[in-house]
């Protein structure tokens, strides 16, 4: 149950950081903002690791033995920022949000299948329900957006 709440809070934090990023990007630029974020984040986690000695009980050898791709998460994160920056201004925000959500959801179901987590009919059915909900709200927003545009 605790993890379910943590995952939910993560979603809220995503929105919070997206808004702060957008404000920061307006002042200094999107890539400069990303640089600032990673610098602040790195200092922050560096301090945490420093004060938790137990967290670094691992040898360099053990790190080198891991496959190369496992380290690419941070790289992909920056690519996502860059890609969003190219894509989002070119399609309406509600489309982009919906499409990004759908991409996430179905990639996630596939990945669970390949990483040995159970893939069940429930996950697919649940995924479809979530998409239905996203689509429904998308059309509510779209309807009101169209009305708002016509009144101008």
């Amino acid at each position: 149950m605790m993890y379910i709440i943590l995952a939910f809070i993560s979603g809220c934090l995503v929105i919070l950081s997206m808004i702060i990023n957008a404000h920061l990007a307006k002042k200094i630029g999107i890539f400069q903002g990303t640089f600032v974020n990673y610098t602040v984040g790195l200092s922050f986690i560096f301090l945490i690791v420093l004060f938790r000695h137990s967290a670094v009980n691992i040898s360099l050898n053990a790190l080198l033995r891991l496959p190369f791709w496992i380290y690419l998460g941070g790289f992909i994160g920056v690519i996502v920022v860059a890609a969003s920056n190219k894509i989002i201004p070119r399609i309406p925000t509600i489309y982009s949000t919906l499409l990004v959500f759908i991409g996430q959801l179905f990639a996630a179901i596939l990945i669970d299948y390949f990483t040995g987590h159970a893939i069940s009919k429930g996950k697919i059915a649940g995924g479809l329900l979530i998409c239905a909900g996203l689509l429904y709200n998308f059309y509510v927003d779209k309807k009101h957006l169209d009305v708002a545009q016509q009144t101008f």
Partner: peptide
């Protein structure tokens, strides 16, 4: 603990609410 699809699905829900 949850796997990727439940983690992300809950994240999307959190994003929608927030």
């Amino acid at each position: 603990y949850l796997g990727i699809s439940i983690t992300l699905a809950l994240g999307l829900f959190g994003q929608s609410i927030a």
